[in-house]
Amino acid sequence: MEPHSQLMVEAPRPWARPLVLVPVFAVVALLGAALPSFSGRATALVLVAGGPLFWLGLSARLPRHRAPRRLPSGAAWWLLPAGVLFAVEATNFLLGSTPDHPTLSQLADIPLAGYPCRAAAYFGWLMAFWGLVRR
């Protein structure tokens, strides 16, 4: 039998199951996407949604995937997109983050102006946050 690379220490709690979390995240995303940027309510929802996730991620309340103790040499491949992303983002930021030199968040503002895309991105942010909590 092939050994598992990602072992769970214990079974997840009932409320931490996808059947519970996915609908909750979907509702938060649908609500959050309706809130305008630069509003107190939008900030409050990010704080209310992210706070418990941040706290859960730091606590030992949930089982985590087993992380590697050492990285294989192939990990260096990740430096390529990271380096290009940093270089382009930093250059455009230093050039004033103008329409001619847009940062990533400035470009993301265009699709995120639409509700469906904003809700999907919000949901993705929450799901990825959950994935990091379990790491």
């Binding site: 959050g32 996407a33 809130l35 940027s37 939008a42 900030t43 929802l45 990010v46 704080l47 949604a49 992210g50 996730l53 941040f54 991620g57 730091l58 985590r64 995937h65 087993r66 992380a67 590697p68 103790r69 990285l71 968040s105 993301a108 995120l112 904003r118 991105a121 919000y122 942010w125 990825a128 946050f129 990091l132 909590v133 790491r135």
Partner: peptide, 30 residues
């Protein structure tokens, strides 16, 4: 997961950094 393993003494610096960055990113975007 590897980055999040990083600790200084008992302080989970890696977890704080990665989770904090992701939380900040959500605030920055939304």
């Amino acid at each position: 997961g590897f980055v999040m393993r990083y600790q200084v003494r008992r302080l989970p610096v890696g977890r704080i950094a990665v989770l904090g960055f992701w939380w900040w990113l959500g605030w920055h975007v939304f």
